[in-house]
């Protein structure tokens, strides 16, 4: 369990300012989404949290501890599953854990079973479908020793049906563990369905232009996506994003 606080974060590459005085917070056990158009600096934010880049200004705090520029403070799930083809599913999910401590294969097996992957524990990634691979990648991030999980458009490469299945699956697993999550996406529906709170990013230099709390109770059902309240929210966010693009 953990909280993330980003304060006054700025980053530019060459003369290009990507982020300017960004402020954001993820509370304990909260599912927060960053929604923004392509090229709005979402990936840069992740790279800064992951410690791959040094910010020009500002600090990133995890549980009150300054982690600015420090690698390995968060658990990460990338856009592509990024599984190692020579490792079995079980060996893959313990990889992130392995980087810091002795992996707990017992726990990993339990988690895979709960995630509906019991039959694939000893399979290689090449034998799995795209959706299955993403599940494996998510279980890997859950098993990481770090408590904050950063998800970088994890479902963007999947087809519409698989995507919806994956969202439901993700929610069911997440609700059991309730880790703090920072989720990056450009899909409005996905972000409303999954999140507690949505932060809409503006055009460059990126900053949070609107913050929306999602009022729906959990556990959420698929039928939610067709209710008037849901569609109303979708419309509202859509207009906010259109506003950015029309500027």
């Amino acid at each position: 369990m953990s909280t993330l606080a980003i304060k006054d974060l700025s980053k530019s590459f060459g003369g290009d300012t990507i982020l300017s005085q960004l402020e954001l917070k993820v509370n304990e056990g909260e599912f927060v989404s960053l929604l923004g158009p392509s090229g709005s600096g979402k990936s840069t934010i992740f790279h800064l949290i992951g410690g791959l880049y040094q910010p020009d200004k500002g600090i990133i705090e995890l549980d009150g501890k300054d982690i600015t520029g420090q690698k390995g403070s968060i658990s990460y799930m990338p856009q592509s599953p990024s599984l190692f083809p020579w490792r079995t599913v079980l060996e893959n999910v313990v990889l992130a854990q392995e980087l810091f401590e002795k992996p707990d294969k017992q726990k990993a097996t339990e988690m895979l079973t709960r995630a509906g992957l019991a039959d694939y524990i000893n399979s290689y990634p090449a034998q799995l479908s795209g959706g299955m691979r993403q599940r494996v990648a998510f279980v890997r991030s859950l098993l990481s020793p770090q408590s904050l999980i950063c998800l970088d458009e994890p479902f963007s490469a999947l087809d519409e049906f698989t995507r919806l299945d994956m969202q439901k699956w993700l929610l069911s697993i997440w609700e059991e563990e309730r880790p703090s999550v920072l989720f990056v996406t450009h899909n409005i529906e996905e972000t409303i369905f999954l999140s507690d709170r949505i932060l809409v990013l503006g055009a460059r230099p990126a900053n949070v232009i609107e913050e929306i709390s999602i009022p729906f109770d959990r556990p959420r059902e698929e039928s939610l996506t067709l209710t008037p309240e849901f569609l109303q929210l979708k419309k509202q966010i859509f207009h906010t994003l259109r506003g950015i693009n029309n500027d």
Binding site: S75, E98, L99, S144
Partner: peptide, 21 residues
């Protein structure tokens, strides 16, 4: 490069990137 990027984000040291990846 995607796997290298993942390893870096996951906090792997250069030695781990070499031996494990």
């Amino acid at each position: 490069p995607e796997l290298i990027h993942y390893m870096k984000m996951a906090g792997a040291t250069n030695k781990q990137i070499f031996t494990k990846l």
